[in-house]
Amino acid sequence: MNKVYSSFNEAVADIPDSATLMIDGFAGPGGTSQNLIRALRDQGASDLTIISNTAGLASVSGFGTLPGQKPIDIGILVDNGQVGKVIASFPVSPSPSRPTSFEKAYHRGEVELELVPQGTLAERIRAGGAGIPAFFTPTGIGTFVTEGKETRSYDGKEYVLETALKADYALIRGYMADTMGNLSFRGTSMNFNGVMVTAAAISIVEVDKIVDVGEIDSYRIDTPALYVNRIVEV
């Protein structure tokens, strides 16, 4: 079997309408699979559910962006009318006076939002990849987060039941992959990528460099190959 794809377009070609995708969007351009996102925009699949830390902020915020860079993120999928629902913790612009297209579409009722605390989002994804259907967490007790959910007390402290998240596809930004699919990340670009890669049926990874097996020191592999289905070099 061959995991190495020669183009981003080819790597996302089979993503159907109404698919659920995990796409990292925390760390600014560093952690974002910009090439795969652009290919998905060109491919045109619609009514997507996207699980991401944000709902696209690159168009209004210079978060983690080097001088002179013009990064893109999942905002271009929202702009293109491909997104039906977003599950996120930080969905809107930090500055209310500069709303994103997501915020405008949300107020028009064109896109659905499930707002999730960031740690709960990470843990729901981790649980999805680890065969844990649900878990109790203290985060969100006494807030809107508990609405419609079971709560339970352990040792006198309240917890809320949160369910796992899984996806059909994950679009991942890594640093290096070997041809087997072993993966290493670089610095803070690991963040949501590191859990999302475990929780999708098909993980598609763009990396700076694809190398022969053995060229990544085995002691420095962050994600073992079994989680990785497709790799494309930037």
């Binding site: 760390a27 600014g28 915020s61 080097l66 990470a122 994804i125 610095g187 690991m190 590191g194």
Partner: peptide
Amino acid sequence: DQDLINASGQFLAPVKGMSFFDSGAAF
């Protein structure tokens, strides 16, 4: 370095002893 930021999106200097982890571990 775009792979070296804090949660405010500020760029950090590399220093000895810093470590990195995924969002599951961070939380």
